Simulated scan of single mutants.
Amino acid sequence: MSTHPFASLALPELDEPSSLALPHARRWVATDAGWVSVQSGRAWLTRDGDLDDHVLVTGQRLWLRRGDVLTAEAWQAGDPVWLVWRPEPDQAGPLPFLGGFVALAAGALARAARGLAGGLLALARSAEASACRAQGSICAGESMASAGALQ
């Protein structure tokens, strides 16, 4: 199976969709970052290094970074699929933005969890100190009673 850059297949912009029948798996290299979308049909797509496979139907799309290697084929053999490639080299895509947002939210959640853990630890220490004092009082009372000091 050979690898071809998207540009060499002349996949059109969204305003000029063309049918690309995928009777068997084909591979391409994204020459720029951009979107590959399904104009019509159902396609199976996977990127090298991506643990997820993607089954896209009409109107759905997948973000590719420059240099991503894509394998695609029709979901059912022989069904025509229209794939459309739209490069967007000036945009970083959704992943860096979402990754930064997720990291920010995770950091805030971690700080809140540390604060909660600190508060629970202080509460546990206070309970332990109270238990020790109560235990000490019980022990002192027992020793006094056993010595015959209390009547």
Rank of each mutant, 00 (worst) to 15 (best):
H4Y: 12
E73W: 05
T46W: 13
A124H: 09
D79L: 03
L64Y: 06
S37L: 10
T31S: 01
A7G: 06
D48N: 03
T46I: 03
F97W: 12
P87I: 14
S40R: 09
W75G: 05
D32K: 14
G115Q: 15
S2V: 10
L70S: 04
D32F: 10
W35L: 09
A131N: 02
R66I: 06
W63S: 01
A74C: 09
E13A: 13
G78N: 05
L64R: 01
A43R: 01
D32E: 15
R86S: 02
A108C: 04
R125K: 05
G93K: 00
D52G: 00
V81W: 00
R66H: 09
A124G: 11
T3A: 13
L11F: 11
R86Q: 05
D50V: 10
G107I: 02
A77F: 02
G119Y: 06
E16C: 13
R42M: 03
M1G: 03
G99M: 12
S146C: 02
L123Q: 04
L51S: 09
A134N: 11
L120V: 10
E13F: 13
A145V: 08
A122T: 04
A108S: 02
L95N: 09
S40H: 15
E16M: 08
G49M: 04
L45F: 13
D53G: 13
G141D: 08
P12H: 15
A21I: 02
M144D: 11
R114M: 08
R47K: 11
